[in-house]
């Protein structure tokens, strides 16, 4: 069964003559337990797809089915216990006045989780933060630690699907490695499905099996990471992206 099915998705901003499309006629499936990557340059609409799935953009048309639930204009409560999102900037995704403990216990409270106290301890261990971090405020944490807290928050309700919006692009490479490893481990442990957005082909290649290459709101092509590694991309645009990303590494 597919975890996520998206068919003919269009997303636009603005009204009337100002209407501009960020995503156009995008169709893709993500299987249960699969990790699907979306790559493209800034403004290609890759993050907008995630936001549309999560219900943060109200102006869309098309069909979306997530975990067996067909999505309408409003998301149900049960949707949020199945799908969670990790944001790009860990400095902006935590409430500046709330301790780690408050963030996690509120998320659990909203989902009716029992034994909140023990669960928080376990969750912090899961994401590689000790109990010592529990009562800290965001400004007492480094970027990587904040991102771990954000990941912990998204796992608070035991979701099956995680939407990852450039989760490591604001971090140092060494910290990026830690977070990517954590995401690999969590996926294995909790049997998660990922949809990950990134501009970095190396990162997507590390975490995903299949990749959708986006350009100006449309899918240029969808290919497996294996094909990408062997440079078997069909579209010249993907080739160009591949080359420049390999050039910048070597």
């Amino acid at each position: 069964m597919s975890a996520v099915m998206v068919k003919d998705l269009n997303v636009w901003f603005g009204v009337g003559a100002d209407r501009s499309y960020a995503v156009r006629d995008v169709t893709f499936d993500v299987a249960d337990g699969e990790s699907f990557g979306l790559v493209g340059e800034s403004g290609s609409g890759k993050s907008t797809i995630l936001r549309a799935i999560a219900g943060l953009v109200p102006t869309w048309s098309g069909d979306m089915t997530v975990a067996g639930e067909t999505l309408g204009p409003k998301r149900s409560k049960s949707f949020y216990s199945k799908v969670q999102m990790v944001f790009q900037d860990p400095y902006a995704s935590l409430h500046p006045r709330q301790t780690v403990d408050r963030v996690l216990s509120e998320a659990m409270g909203l989902h009716g989780v029992q034994n909140i106290n023990t669960r928080i301890g376990k969750l912090l261990d899961d994401v590689g933060l000790g109990a010592g971090f529990r009562f800290r405020y965001p400004h007492q944490l480094s970027g990587g630690q904040r991102q771990r807290v954000a990941i912990a928050r998204s796992l608070a309700c035991n979701p099956s699907i995680l939407l990852l919006d450039e989760p490591t692009s604001a971090l140092d490479v060494s910290v990026q490695a830690e977070i990517l490893n954590l995401l690999v481990d969590l996926r294995r442990e909790h049997k998660l499905t990922y949809i990950m957005v990134s501009h970095d082909l190396g990162v997507v290649g590390h975490l995903c099996e299949r990749i959708g290459v986006m350009r100006e709101g449309r899918f240029e092509e969808v290919l497996t990471v294996e094909d990408m590694r062997r440079s078997k991309a069909e579209s010249p645009y993907t080739q160009h992206l591949l080359e420049s990303s390999i050039n910048s590494v070597r």
């Binding site: 490479v173 060494s174 990026q176 490695a177 830690e178 990517l180 490893n181 690999v184 970095d200 082909l201 190396g202 990162v203 290649g205 590390h206 990471v225 990408m228 590694r229 591949l242 990303s245 390999i246 590494v249």
Partner: peptide, 14 residues
Amino acid sequence: SVPDLERPRDHLEV
């Protein structure tokens, strides 16, 4: 620690 498209690894070095 940089993920490399051409050298897939299960875990990156930390």
